[in-house]
Design a binder for these strands. Sequence first.
DNA 1: TAAGATTTGTTCGTATGTATC
DNA 2: GGATACATACGAACAAATCTT
Lengths: 253, 253
Amino acid sequence: MDGSTTPPAKPKRSRPVQVADQIKQWVVERDLKKGDKLPNESAMIELFSVSKGTVREALRILEAQGLIVTKTGPGGGSIVGEVSANRARSLLANYFYFQDLSVADIYQMRRALEPELAASLAGTLTEDQIAELQELAERYPEPAKSAEEEKEQHIASLVFHARLSEFAENKLLGFVIGFMANILTDMTVYRQLYDPPNVVLWSKGREHQLALVEALRAGQAEEARRIMASHMQVAEELMKVQEAHLLRRFMGD
Amino acid sequence: MDGSTTPPAKPKRSRPVQVADQIKQWVVERDLKKGDKLPNESAMIELFSVSKGTVREALRILEAQGLIVTKTGPGGGSIVGEVSANRARSLLANYFYFQDLSVADIYQMRRALEPELAASLAGTLTEDQIAELQELAERYPEPAKSAEEEKEQHIASLVFHARLSEFAENKLLGFVIGFMANILTDMTVYRQLYDPPNVVLWSKGREHQLALVEALRAGQAEEARRIMASHMQVAEELMKVQEAHLLRRFMGD
DNA sequence: TAAGATTTGTTCGTATGTATC
DNA sequence: GGATACATACGAACAAATCTT
């Protein structure tokens, strides 16, 4: 006649993840920063009253999420470790492994974001950064002679965008664009080759990248935005001829 | 005089993560799907020639990434588990824990993406979905009387956007928008309250949401885009008065 | 170079918990 | 309730890595 029929809902997390949570809490409470040391294994065994195996499983969990790094030897142990962009990308890619994205989906995002990035980057880059971008854009001065070569050029173009994304002051914007460049690179690498190189699109793409570098150097934000928007259209055409759906990942670091 | 001075680069991953990689490979090779069973512990011990403890640590790694789910008892063991959106958000939030995003950063993204989402949703929603959105938009018909109440309303508004993002056919677009709604919710929850409620902004926000629902129902894509763009401007003003920088997370599930 | 100290890495044996039949 | 099959957890021992002297 009471709520006893409803066993309040039992989360019942296994011991190792409980301990992992406790360790996180321990870290947050003390507001530990990037390189700070965590207690060593034996200390944690006492601290949480669990066995060595359990502590180790908990540490693996945190390590898998990129939250800690563990070293052996004297002065070793676990320390707080900043989650790398690479790791974050891998973890997120595992999610989209199950979601079946299409090329059209990715380009809907790119059309909205890449011009924004270009505009916000205008006039903020150092000479070294500009020079690096220019070098990337100037590679492959000749149109591709084979499908294999076109694949290479396409990947190089994605490197250009990935590098650009790393310069973003807006880390969220930069991450999302870099993530997409990653996905597209994977799709290109594993792609079947059956389309002949498209000289017109190659030529437009190259012109766009070079013009973009100039606009960035000159600090012309709206011009950079316009060029990038146009560039996205061309890039989308190039990709659309590939398989529409595909995104198979599950690994990587 | 040869390469012997360059010990080919030593990845040197610890045994458990090696085993975790091997398990992933085992799964990918067989193209296992969501509920499919993995070998049980003792089988893996033989399969990879490692001890029980090592296998368990490897399993915890995969579990932490959301790739497998483990159950006890007969017929139990580990199965392939689809990474949930929630887990992906948590994992990604851990990355941005170290990146120090600003409100301005997030709104630069929202301005670019939310209108796009609104436009692509016009005319694609079911009556049930429209009704749910309408109900969310109609809550709080009165302006907030206290800072506390305004906080509640703001969170409710973010629920509206989060729900909208779940309807997106473009999973990447939906995920990113949902992720931002999550972040903003956290920021709002932990926010200090010292600003008086702003009646004008409340009124505009409410009108926008209601008008948006109408445009979505009528299938007017460009109208929906326009309304959302306008709505983002208002929402940004509301948020800008808060602390500019903040994003402290490290946990959650 | 070598030895020793420190800390994680790995294994094994055993016992307990839990869900299915 | 009992038997079975599986994960879960503990503890002790030994191996490997790395820093210090």
